[in-house]
Computed example of a mutant assay.
Amino acid sequence: MAPTPVHFFSHGSTMMLGEESESADYWKRCGDEALRRGVKGVIMMGAHWDAEGDRIEVATNPDPKKSPVAYVHPDKYRNYKLNPDLTTAERCIKMLRTQGFNVDGNPSFDWIHDTYLILIRMFPHGCPPTVLISMNARFDPHFHMKVGATLRPLRHDGYLLIGSGGAVHNLYRNRWAPMLRYLDNFAMETPPEGWALEFRQSVEDALTQNSGPRLRRAMTRLMKHPQFRDAHATDDHFMAGLFVAGAAGDPEDEGTFATLEAETWELTNMCNSQFTIGTWA
């Protein structure tokens, strides 16, 4: 079958689970379309789980719990039933090992909001079979791109590959006062700062103006961007974008460009851009 689309979602703050937004509406539309197309399951790399050394891990906990979500009422997530796909998790482990990755299952990992926030928004009436892939704590862009490239064949089998990270995600440079005082994460007392606007535009250009192997090179180059460290104080939220570039940057993907479908600014300087590469055939 034709390959499924790939999503690079910026999950933003925890309040993106509790508050309505343009991004949340788009996540829901993506989930509805995936269900309508008979999606087999979801393969996702988030931004809050990494393995040390040269390792990566695949979640194999048959009954994972959910880490608490700050600033969101528990009714928004505590009754949502997670659906780990252990069979496909083992398939992912075998695929990754074949390509030389030092990978194992993690039978005790509990899911974190960076992944289940997206799943709840996409599939509010029931979680599809889902596999979570960890990052590696060295945050090598080529390494994470190869993870996405290795799992890319699952797109031909009806699986939806998602990277959940951030386009501009530097917690140290956000304006937290409106959220802490008034629970208003969307307050914009001032415009975003220039570094945030500059890097946000560079992410859009890299994703929407490049395809195939050129997309992989463009996303890798962003880590040398003059504003990269301003936009990402730590590398973890950008690795999901490299995973996506690997999954959607094959020569077969030449000519298939990403589209920016929704965007939500939070805390003045956090830009939650939502990109999709490809369409359902």
Results as ranks from 00 to 15, higher is better:
Val72Lys: 14
Arg36Ser: 13
Lys94His: 10
Gly126Ala: 10
Arg37Leu: 05
Cys127Pro: 03
Thr220His: 08
His113Ala: 00
Ile120Cys: 12
Trp280Ala: 09
Leu267Ala: 03
Ala137Arg: 15
Pro74Trp: 12
His144Tyr: 01
Arg97Ile: 06
Gly105Phe: 00
Gly46Tyr: 01
His237Thr: 01
Lys66Val: 09
Ala34Thr: 05
Asp230Cys: 08
Gly255Arg: 14
Ser164Trp: 01
Glu254Ser: 15
Gly18Lys: 03
Asp250His: 15
Ser273Phe: 04
Asp32Trp: 05
Gln274Val: 13
Lys146Val: 02
Ser108Gln: 14
Asp32Ala: 08
Val6Met: 01
Pro251Phe: 04
Ala2Ser: 14
Tyr172Glu: 11
Leu132Arg: 09
Thr4Asp: 02
Met219Ala: 09
Pro68His: 06
Pro129Cys: 06
Glu261Leu: 12
Cys30Val: 11
Met45Ala: 07
Gly212Lys: 09
Leu161Tyr: 06
Thr259Cys: 09
Leu154Gln: 10
Tyr77Leu: 01
Ser21Tyr: 09
Ala262Cys: 11
Phe243Asn: 02
Glu193Lys: 15
Leu96Tyr: 10
Val42Phe: 04
His232Pro: 10
Tyr159Ala: 09
Lys76Glu: 14
Thr220Val: 10
Phe199Ile: 00
Thr87Cys: 01
Pro213Met: 05
Ser21Pro: 09
Trp195Gly: 05
Lys224Trp: 13
Ile93Pro: 00
Tyr77Phe: 15
Asp250Glu: 14
Gly212Trp: 00
Thr190Met: 14
His125Trp: 13
Ile118Leu: 12
His73Asp: 14
Ala245Arg: 00
His125Arg: 14
His156Trp: 10
Thr234Phe: 05
Ser10Cys: 04
Ser23Tyr: 09
Leu161Arg: 02
Pro74Asp: 10
Cys92Trp: 07
Asn210Ser: 03
Arg29Trp: 06
Gly158Asn: 12
Asp253Thr: 04
Gly53His: 13
Ile133His: 04
His144Asn: 07
Thr14Tyr: 12
